[in-house]
Design a protein around this nucleic acid. Structure first.
Lengths: 156, 156
DNA sequence: GGTGAAAGCGAGGACCA
DNA sequence: TGGTCCTCGCTTTCACC
């Protein structure tokens, strides 16, 4: 699974992580190539799965979400089916923008957006607390995102 | 800061969150508009800050990162300058792909990628443990990302 | 807010070195 | 691999409804 990337590939990936709307012509200029080989490289990166997609990044603030919370959930049961059903249920809740099954004291770590603290409280009470098999919930609020743009480092 | 969005705007945002490379022609078709008004709406969404950018989403796995960890950090001091300097230092560490200053028992929550557990151990020992003013660190590993694609829900 | 048309440019492919 | 050229379709911007 480790795909070989040369300097040019890394430059392309960094440019596209910063701005997915760069045209092939602009990309080519940045990496000192002509458009055809540049376009071919990008396509190869897409096909190999290194680039899994392109996404518009929305501002939670501008959409009226003033609160980002991290919610840790401990289950009172750990069977295969219960975990699967629980994950399925989590996927149906749009306020949960990220969600990991994790090791340690808690079983799931969620990132949740809400309009304000009051709205989050209601969400926690009416949605999270009523999920099946939940034993304990711990919420922590983001005062500020220190690193707003998620960038995967390129190895080597 | 709450920007008014009608049904069409929301459809555009949802389409662009799923695929930022859709052409204006394709977008227009999906929302039953012609290209001109569609293009104008997208531009307005960009200028208003609702769309803060476009990003290629890379696969950590394909890049050789087998481990995603969530690291909670407790500081032994909480002055303004120390926090600022600490955040500045965190920004210089590329393995930290996300980072929040949070409420609760810990002060910072980081998301870190690493090649494998061994590599993470080394990173924790040599980079995280040596940061100034760190009192306690708690690491939790992601077994699996339940929601791989981050999508902000649209209000209303 | 919506439509339609026009100019220019980029995407994507065929082919050569 | 990289480069050149070529064609179609899209982007972008009009003027107008």
């Amino acid at each position: 699974m480790p795909i070989k990337l040369d300097r040019t590939d890394k430059a392309l990936l960094n440019a596209l992580q910063a701005n997915a709307r760069l045209t092939v012509a602009e990309l080519a200029e940045r990496v000192a190539l002509t458009t055809s080989p540049c376009w071919r490289r990008v396509r190869t990166l897409e096909e190999s799965g290194v680039i899994s997609g392109y996404q518009a990044i929305l501002s939670p603030k501008a959409l009226g979400y003033g609160v980002t919370a991290f919610v840790s959930i401990m289950m009172d049961s750990h069977t295969q089916e219960i975990a699967r059903a629980f994950e399925q249920r989590l996927l149906e809740i749009p306020e949960i923008v990220a969600c990991h099954n994790v090791s340690g004291r808690y079983d799931f770590l969620l990132e949740v957006v809400a309009r304000d603290l009051e709205s989050f409280g209601e969400f926690a009470r009416e949605v999270l607390q009523t999920l099946p098999c939940v034993k304990e919930i711990y919420s922590s609020f983001s005062y500020k995102s220190v690193r707003p743009l998620r960038v995967i480092p390129l190895p080597g």
